[in-house]
Amino acid sequence: ELSWTAEAEKMLGKVPFFVRKKVRKNTDNYAREIGEPVVTADVFRKAKEHLG
């Protein structure tokens, strides 16, 4: 699991709890794919757009 900024964690907190774990995993995987060592708010937004 990658490191997350406080802002990205806050955004994740707005995701319904029953899918939060999956969203975190998918976002981590997306960040790795694009070469990001940390999940930022920008990476979170891009993952959301990319993953739907």
Rank of each mutant, 00 (worst) to 15 (best):
E1P: 14
E1L: 11
E1D: 11
E1A: 12
L2M: 11
L2R: 05
L2Q: 05
L2C: 05
S3R: 14
S3Y: 12
S3G: 09
S3P: 15
S3H: 14
S3N: 10
W4N: 01
W4T: 00
W4I: 00
W4R: 00
T5I: 02
T5Y: 02
T5L: 03
T5N: 05
T5S: 08
T5H: 04
T5C: 03
A6K: 12
A6T: 10
A6P: 12
A6C: 07
A6R: 10
E7F: 04
E7V: 05
E7T: 06
E7M: 07
E7N: 05
A8W: 01
A8Y: 01
E9V: 11
E9I: 15
E9A: 08
E9Q: 09
K10N: 10
K10T: 11
K10M: 13
K10S: 11
M11V: 04
M11A: 07
M11H: 05
M11I: 06
M11Q: 06
M11S: 04
M11L: 14
M11G: 03
L12M: 04
L12E: 00
L12G: 01
L12Q: 01
L12H: 01
G13W: 11
G13F: 13
G13M: 15
G13V: 09
K14V: 07
K14I: 06
K14D: 14
K14S: 10
V15W: 08
V15C: 08
P16E: 05
P16R: 04
P16F: 05
P16I: 04
F17N: 08
F17L: 12
F17C: 07
F17D: 09
F17R: 10
F17A: 12
F17H: 10
F18T: 11
F18S: 14
F18E: 13
F18M: 11
F18W: 15
F18I: 11
V19C: 10
V19Q: 15
V19I: 14
V19H: 14
R20I: 04
R20Y: 04
R20C: 03
R20A: 04
K21F: 10
K21C: 09
K22Q: 15
K22L: 14
K22H: 14
V23L: 09
V23E: 03
V23K: 02
V23N: 03
V23R: 04
V23G: 01
V23M: 09
V23H: 05
V23A: 06
V23T: 07
R24Y: 03
R24L: 04
R24I: 04
K25E: 14
K25D: 11
K25V: 12
K25M: 14
N26G: 11
N26C: 08
N26E: 15
T27G: 02
T27H: 02
T27S: 04
T27Y: 10
T27M: 08
T27V: 15
T27A: 08
T27W: 03
D28I: 08
D28H: 04
N29G: 07
N29R: 12
N29D: 14
N29V: 09
N29W: 10
N29Q: 14
N29E: 12
N29L: 12
N29P: 01
Y30P: 01
Y30A: 02
Y30T: 02
A31Y: 00
A31V: 03
R32G: 04
R32F: 06
E33N: 11
E33M: 15
E33T: 10
E33H: 11
E33F: 11
E33Q: 12
E33S: 15
I34Q: 11
I34W: 10
I34S: 07
I34M: 13
I34D: 03
G35V: 03
G35R: 06
G35Y: 04
G35A: 05
G35E: 05
E36D: 04
E36P: 00
E36G: 02
E36N: 04
P37S: 14
P37K: 11
P37R: 10
P37A: 12
P37F: 12
P37N: 15
P37H: 13
P37E: 11
P37L: 13
P37T: 13
V38R: 06
V38K: 07
V38F: 07
V38N: 05
V38W: 06
V38C: 08
V39L: 01
V39D: 00
T40H: 03
T40N: 07
T40S: 06
T40K: 02
A41P: 07
A41Y: 05
A41W: 04
D42S: 08
D42Y: 07
D42T: 08
D42F: 06
D42P: 04
D42L: 08
D42W: 09
D42R: 07
D42C: 06
D42A: 10
V43D: 01
V43W: 02
V43A: 03
V43R: 01
F44L: 05
F44A: 02
F44V: 04
F44E: 01
R45L: 15
R45A: 09
K46H: 07
K46P: 02
K46S: 09
K46T: 06
K46Y: 06
K46W: 09
K46A: 13
K46E: 08
A47D: 01
A47W: 12
A47R: 04
A47Q: 04
K48R: 13
K48D: 06
K48W: 14
K48S: 14
E49N: 09
E49P: 07
E49Q: 13
E49G: 11
H50Y: 13
H50N: 09
L51K: 10
L51F: 15
L51R: 14
L51I: 10
L51W: 15
L51V: 09
L51Y: 15
G52F: 09
G52R: 11
G52S: 13
G52V: 13
G52H: 13
G52D: 11
